[in-house]
Every structure is written in C-alpha cells, then in structure tokens.
C-alpha cells in the first residue's frame, strides 16, 4: 500500500515538474529551441533576428505572438493585437512598435513615423 502510494506520488511529481517548467518558460526570451521546453518553440521573427532581439518561448506551431512581436501579424482595432505592448518581459529593452494598417504587421514606430509625412 505504502509502495503504491510512493510510486503514484513520484509519477505525479514528475508530471507536475514537467508542466510547471513549461509554464515557467512560457513567454520567456529565447534565441534557440533549446531555451524552451520540448512542447514549445522559440518564436523569433526575421525582423527580431535582424535587430539582434530575442524571441519568445511559445507553444509549438504558434510561430510568433500576434500584435506583440516585431514582424508578426496585428490588428489595429484589437486592443490585444495593436503592437503597443511587447510579448517579452519589460526588463528587456524592446523597441516601440506600431501596427502597420496596410500590411497588418508590427513594425518599428520610428520606421512608420519616417514613412508618413
């Protein structure tokens, strides 16, 4: 009885440790796949790579966080996807972004202001 309880506890602890680490890494900065949990990927856009900015650990198949990452899709009318807030923690110096209404992609605020008169 005691043995069965130990085995059960060990398995549950292992499963919880895995889940907990995945939660811990979700939304954290990354540069390579190894920086994230095996169920996640490092969502890093080409624009971020060009500017040597880190990507974000996201669930596999997500690609990037819409409206929160440079070069990722956005919606200027959606509060959550208008590129005003970055997906990375505030401690990381991320450049200000804006949602390009024509391309519907997050771009650097400085670029957008330079294009417009």
């Amino acid at each position: 009885m005691r043995r069965t309880r130990f085995i059960h506890t060990a398995l549950v602890s292992a499963a919880l440790a895995g889940c907990s680490l995945a939660d811990e890494l979700d939304g954290e900065p990354c540069a390579v796949e190894e920086d994230c949990w095996h169920t996640q990927e490092c969502g890093r856009t080409a624009e971020e790579e060009q500017l040597a900015l880190p990507g974000v650990c996201v669930s596999k198949g997500t690609g990037c966080v819409p409206g929160r990452q440079l070069g990722c899709a956005c919606d200027p009318l959606d509060y959550d996807r208008d590129c005003l807030m970055a997906a990375l923690p505030v401690a990381i110096d991320y450049p200000a972004m804006i949602c390009d209404e024509v391309r519907r992609v997050c771009v650097l605020e400085s670029d957008e202001s330079g294009v417009q008169p």
Binding site: L25, P29, C30, A31, V32, D35, P89, A91, I92
Partner: peptide, 9 residues
C-alpha cells in the same frame, strides 16, 4: 540575472 532568463545560456 536581473529577473530575466539569459538567452542561449
């Protein structure tokens, strides 16, 4: 690491 996980560490 100042409350930010180091990248490629």
């Amino acid at each position: 690491n100042d409350y930010v996980l180091p990248v490629d560490d």
